[in-house]
Design a protein around this nucleic acid. Structure first.
Length: 600
DNA sequence: GAACAATGTCATTAA
DNA sequence: ATTTAATGACATTGT
């Protein structure tokens, strides 16, 4: 399939060689040969030159931005993570929409028109004043809230951030984004990101991501993470994860979109560059400026979703609940510079895939498959999330109650399932490089399903505590935390399952012990039986011997007897009989027979 | 891909 | 009434 798109005939052998080289380099990334189209390659070269020129400049900018971000963060001594300071100052950052949103053909790389970074931030702050509130308030996951499948055309518009859109007119947002993107610094970031993230990115259908209610996180990461471009990708992606799910858009795509501005400007060489690596969606978009709204949203055909290569199974669930925390992002970024963070669509569904819940509506359950996805990102920074989250963290309304907990919109479930299986394949195909990390991390730390679930819902207790605490302590612990319905349901289920798991283990252990005991007993009984059989045989032999001896003795005694005439008694006519007192009498047999005959 | 073992989960029952 | 343990049955996972 890769070869189908081979370059035109007119291309020289040299070109072909180059194509082959590039192709070999990127084939692992899932890029088709077609991506190396001559025009694309030209763009790529151009982009590379540009990058080189801006490299130094960008590095400096990144450092500066990082400092700025850190300045707004405070180190959580408990977790060792950076968390946004309570001060409002952080809000603007968090609200910053992903660069992708700004995709616009008008966008240029020229520094001249660009706003300064600070200006951009200001603009963003003005544009999205409520962002913080949004973050903390409703659960993005809530199907009802999320734009997901039902997402209207407006939502669908790839370039517009979902939530903000509600508050601001799309034009305003777009304008803001455009300005933001116009900033040379950001462009550099985008380019860099494209560079770094290329491998992880599958397709750039990202636009749809914007719809995600969680999109607001993207901005945050951009601001904060701006420095480490690579890192940004993952975080942004993660943050948007749920929203993505709702949209049924591959997380990877989202990442690309949000992180890279590649798509933003069609004219931008980066586009071609990025697109090269992502034949699927990317290709389709490459030609045109920002793709029409139609693309991104739920409208995306299932098949298309499935095709999107980069679905990486990650435990998105953890982020699913409106992650607004930057700490997580930072951490993630640090750990996944590669942006392998590609989340699998499946992950999002996790919530969606409904398990029949015994506890009731409030309880949400992840299908095993979902859990699988969650497992996939074991090593991710997220794994640390649970510990990081302090009760207070959870306590707030971060996640909307049940609604949040049940991010899994019923409708989404269907979509999820398919993509899931394919996503895995896609990942393998598209992002071989990351598979290693994945496996490695998986092996390193494999969380139990409930542990993953707990992390996903940010349960402030350890699974061990939930399961092992006595009822009183457990209730006390629960009473100290403000948990939403979903969390309570999950905790109950975790406790129930945990105890049942132990019970099952004990039961099986007992069963095995019983089996072993019975086998032992069986062996003993078999031995007993053998012994008894031997005894029986011996006894029989002994009995026969005694009978024989008795018979011999009888005959011997009988033969010694003599009548008055000195003649021996005939054995046929007499027999010896012993009475109870030990006396022996000679009894004539004839008599018996005679009596018998008489009676007859 | 089938067979199998180990383990997890659910439903039910009893204490 | 609630919690827990026990256990059969089924599902999932790994080999």
């Amino acid at each position: 399939m890769m070869e189908i798109e081979l370059p035109k005939m007119h291309q020289s052998q040299q070109d072909m060689d180059l194509i082959d080289i590039l192709w070999r380099q990127d084939i692992d990334l899932g890029a088709g040969r077609e991506v190396f189209d001559y025009s694309h390659r030209q763009k790529e070269h151009e982009l590379q030159r540009q990058r080189e020129l801006e490299e130094e400049k960008r590095q400096q900018l990144l450092r500066e931005q990082e400092k700025a971000v850190l300045a707004q963060l405070q180190l959580d001594e408990e977790t060792g993570e950076f968390v946004p300071r309570p001060a409002a100052g952080v809000q603007p950052q968090t609200s910053t929409p992903p660069p992708e949103v700004t995709q616009d053909g008008l966008f240029t790389e020229e520094d001249g028109n660009a706003l300064s970074f600070d200006e951009c931030m200001q603009l963003l702050a003005e544009t999205f004043p409520l962002v913080e509130a949004i973050e903390t308030t409703p659960p993005p996951l809530d199907p009802a809230v999320s734009p997901p499948a039902g997402g209207g055309p407006a939502m669908m518009a790839p370039q517009q951030p979902p939530l903000p859109a509600a508050e601001k007119s799309p034009q305003e947002l777009e304008q803001a984004w455009m300005e933001l993107l116009s900033i040379p610094e950001l462009q550099c970031l985008n380019m860099q990101m494209a560079d770094v993230l290329e491998p992880s990115f599958g397709a750039t259908t990202a636009p749809t991501e914007l719809q995600d209610p969680n999109y607001f996180y993207m901005p945050t990461f951009t601001d904060m993470v701006a420095p480490p471009a690579d890192a940004v990708g993952p975080t942004g992606y993660l943050s948007t994860f749920e929203g993505t799910i709702s949209n049924s858009i591959p997380p990877d795509n989202l990442n690309q979109m949000s992180l890279k501005a590649s798509d933003i400007n069609p004219s931008f060489s980066a586009d071609g560059f990025c697109d090269m690596f992502y034949p699927g969606d990317m290709n389709t978009k490459v030609d045109g400026p920002a793709p029409p709204a139609g693309n991104g949203n739920t409208d995306i055909p299932l098949a298309e979703l499935q095709n999107t290569p980069p679905l990486k199974p990650i435990d998105i669930p953890e982020f699913a609940l409106g992650e607004g925390f930057e700490n997580g992002k930072l951490e993630i970024m640090a750990e996944f510079p590669d942006s392998d963070s590609g989340l699998s669509l499946d992950a999002s569904p996790k919530a969606s895939s409904p398990e029949k819940s015994t506890s009731g509506d409030g309880s949400f359950r992840y299908s095993d498959s979902d859990m699988e996805e969650m497992d996939s990102n074991p090593g991710s920074a997220e794994s640390d999330f649970a510990e990081i989250f302090s009760p207070s963290f959870l306590g707030d309304g971060h996640q909307a109650p049940s609604s949040v907990a049940t991010p899994s919109a019923q409708p989404q479930d269907v979509k999820i399932k398919h993509p899931k299986t394919e996503s895995v394949e896609g990942v393998g195909h598209g992002k071989p490089p990351f598979t290693k990390d994945k496996h490695k991390k998986r092996s390193e730390s494999r969380l139990s399903r409930d542990e993953q679930r707990a992390k996903a819902l940010r349960i402030p207790f350890t699974v061990e505590m939930i399961i092992n605490l006595p009822v009183d302590d457990f209730n006390e612990m629960m009473s100290k935390q403000q948990l939403n319905e979903a969390q309570l349901a999950l905790v109950r289920d975790i406790r129930r399952r945990g105890k049942n798991k132990v019970a099952a283990q004990n039961c099986r252990k007992r069963k095995m012990e019983n089996i072993v005991g019975l086998e032992y007993e069986l062996d003993s009984l078999k031995e007993e039986r053998e012994r008894l059989l031997r005894e029986h045989t011996e006894t029989g032999t002994s009995l026969r011997q005694m009978k024989q001896q008795l018979s011999t003795l009888y005959l011997e005694v009988f033969s010694l007897l003599r009548d008055e005439e000195g003649k021996p008694y005939s054995p046929s006519e007499y027999s010896l009989q012993q009475t109870s007192d030990g006396s022996v009498f000679l009894v004539p047999r004839v008599k018996k027979t005679l009596i018998k005959n008489d009676s007859n």
